[in-house]
Design a protein around this nucleic acid. Structure first.
Lengths: 195, 195
DNA sequence: TAAAAAAGTTGACCACGGTCATTTTTTTTG
DNA sequence: CAAAAAAAATGACCGTGGTCAACTTTTTTA
């Protein structure tokens, strides 16, 4: 049977994460350097990669909980009953995810787990998002011709689309919220149509 | 006034691109190394970066036209009249965009132009996509309560969502097409609802 | 408690994208 | 045509993420 993790290990890991958090607070995610992290944590460079598969994995670990905090807030609050309420509720999450171009890229890259055994913090938050959105739709004044899960996945797709447009000089004259609202209105309260 | 580009320059650039295309054909996009490109092209490493801002820019240049080729085909064909026809028409494009994880990442990163003056090949294709989709909807048996442009942007969002799921071990038991169809059905032929 | 085994750490080293002062080639000027 | 100016190419060098064989510390075994 596997031996218990040593206290020393946990301490080293905690020092590395604390150093990384401090650096992020000071210079942002993109400017974080592994060298700087190990310097502050007082470890060798190799130690970093013993604890984290790569730099992005550490980012996953730092960004994931921040997203989760927003999801906690969403879950604690009431289900939005209008499109305006919904976009309003989603904006803090969008702002976090688009705080840096680099952060948005990491989130997209990590939003899907590479393997079932490797569901990282960010990938988990994407699963949670669907759950939370779907709960909103279980009993809401929106369309009911499709499953709540499908509606939820659509909301996620549109949120991503709206955020991505923010980084495009051709489209960023509109705010994320301005882009998201027509999407969600058309998705959640369609006037019917089609053959 | 600016002097004309030298023939030598165009030749060097052509050699670099040809070398890159050959490498991609042999080992794929992800395994391409700049060192290998310049070795085959018979130039110094620095020359590569005189011609391309960075490695990703070259990728943009190689991937963009391939997407365009598919868009040409879509534009040449008739507008799909059913969801099945639409997903069928879109699949070749999806297969190209997801041929490698790395390719999908590059496409996402370059899908939005960083500046109006820097609209690269891939970013252009995303604009074209919207135009082509919107044309489909100008006269189609789908919902008509929202603009064709909005419908087109939605299709794009759902295509990306379906492709992204393909790289997630949690979801990739379903094919892209199987995921895309319910999305598009719900988006393009809603049964009405909402308040 | 000593020896063996496992866990944890280390830092020199590598891979690879990207830079830039210098050199070579081409074009323009007079 | 030679001299000057501009354009293009060069390759040694750098930054940074990541590896790994050797070393140190902790835990287990007997």
């Amino acid at each position: 049977m596997a031996r218990a993790t040593q206290k020393r290990t946990l301490e080293t890991r905690a020092r590395l994460i604390a150093a990384a958090e401090a650096i992020v607070a000071e210079v942002g995610f993109e400017a974080l350097r592994v060298e700087e992290v190990v310097l502050r944590a007082g470890t060798a460079k190799g130690t970093f990669f013993v604890h984290f598969k790569d730099k992005d994995t550490l980012m996953d670990l730092i960004i994931g909980p921040r997203i989760d905090a927003h999801l906690d807030a969403l879950q604690a609050g009431p289900a939005p009953r209008t499109i305006e309420e919904m976009t309003g509720a989603l904006m803090p999450l969008c702002d976090l995810m688009t705080c840096e171009r680099y952060v948005f890229d990491v989130i997209l890259r990590y939003s899907g787990a590479a393997g079932v055994a490797e569901i990282g913090p960010i990938a988990s938050t994407f699963g949670r998002q669907i759950e939370i959105f779907a709960q909103w739709f279980d009993d809401a004044p929106f369309r009911r011709d499709v499953t709540a899960d499908l509606l939820a996945e659509g909301v996620q797709a549109f949120v991503i689309q709206a955020m991505a447009a923010q980084f495009c000089a051709l489209h960023n004259s509109q705010s994320i919220r301005e882009r998201l609202e027509p999407y969600l209105r058309a998705w959640l309260t369609p006037a019917a149509g089609g053959t």
